[in-house]
Design a protein around this nucleic acid. Structure first.
Lengths: 210, 210
DNA sequence: TAGATTGTTAATCGATTAACAATC
DNA sequence: TAGATTGTTAATCGATTAACAATC
């Protein structure tokens, strides 16, 4: 499976395929054609076939795709063949919300701890996960093979956390703070910039009114 | 300002311009060239000039762009010239997190109420906003000129909420449930599919390992 | 004026769609 | 076999980048 030169546009569609295939699987659908999938998912049949063929010929002429096989294959492509240890920095509302998402756990994203600087938060258990003092961050991450850190701090605190992550063995950041982190090494960074997304809503609302 | 035929790619970059210009403004930077902005923001200077010229000639040859003017103009394009009334459906952790974001309020997204079906939640105040019974949803939305609804329910509850929104005067949905809502009319829908984004992280982690 | 930088056209690049031969 | 549908190549479309004349 040599994922060379796959465009980011394709990668970002994969989770959607994964989601729809799961639904089909849950509904006991055994096979599906690119045409049928197209109708459900909203991509063209051509695009679906192109996307999938970046990773291999998963279908069969005259038949279509086996739902279970394709679901498993896309899971593999997405790296869902093993669990990932994760921690959350920032035990506020958002951090707590993420800590309580059972679907992350089910997919293999295993929350090992939460960190905060607020003494009132430290020692609490959220969904049976400990809130630990930020002092122990680097040690904990390295000792527990944490690979992904979710940053749920304020805008102001985020860069400092990012700097500290870069001193550990963790290699990916999922950033919820409304700031573009400055990263030196080849860390993987995905941003959820809520405000950016909300501003597109107001853009479309305004445009629609004119 | 005729926003005709502007591609979605351009629209999604606008909030980032807005964010960086705010930062420049806060640092008392008076003017900036597309070249300097390029270095900060990571888009090419050419792309920045192309993007901005979709909406008008905001710059001046030999000078660059006036930071304050450009910030205001982009704010206008994004629809930030008036407030928007919003409500949250689902007063769980995520709903509460969103209710507590002061930056949304500062930009003009005014939270009028939160809704839930859980009797334990109803009557609570979160950040001085009432949690109301879902029974009163349609009436409240129409009487309070709510334009945007944030869906923070479970996957299972989201479509039902979407159906109910379509019976009101609200015209935009900000959806956090991991499902693609079926919408009949021309409602504006923006999705934050957290799992989809997290799966790209595991994809990149896996790819990086090979 | 000379230098700088935009606004804008043209060239390039990449992604999506269409078409169809291969084949189950 | 006949029908269906993939895998894949070619055509199209759109977005990004480069170039440069206009002009502050």
């Amino acid at each position: 499976m040599k994922d060379k030169n796959i465009s980011v546009a394709v990668i970002r569609r994969l989770p959607k395929y994964h989601r729809y295939l799961k639904e089909l699987l849950d509904n006991d659908v055994k096979r599906i054609s690119s045409k049928e999938l197209s109708k459900m998912i909203g991509f063209t049949a051509s695009q679906i076939r192109q996307d999938l063929n970046n990773f291999g010929g998963f279908g069969q002429q005259g038949y279509g795709y086996n739902v279970e096989d394709l679901y498993m294959e896309i899971g593999k492509i997405l790296g869902l063949t093993r669990p990932y240890n994760v921690v959350i920095v920032g035990a506020g509302n958002l951090g707590q919300a993420l800590a309580n998402y059972t679907s992350f756990d089910r997919l293999g994203f295993k929350l090992q701890a939460m960190f905060d600087v607020n003494p009132k938060m430290i020692g609490l258990k959220i969904n049976s996960v400990n809130v630990i003092d930020m002092d122990q961050f680097e040690t904990f991450v390295d000792e527990n093979n944490v690979e992904i850190v979710y940053i749920c701090t304020s805008r102001e605190g985020a860069q400092d956390v990012a700097d500290r992550i870069q001193k550990t063995k963790a290699r990916a950041i999922w950033n919820f703070a409304p700031v573009d982190l400055k990263i030196k090494n080849d860390m993987i960074v995905e941003n959820i910039h809520l405000i950016d997304n909300l501003l597109t809503v107001s853009y479309f609302l305004k445009s629609r009114m004119e």
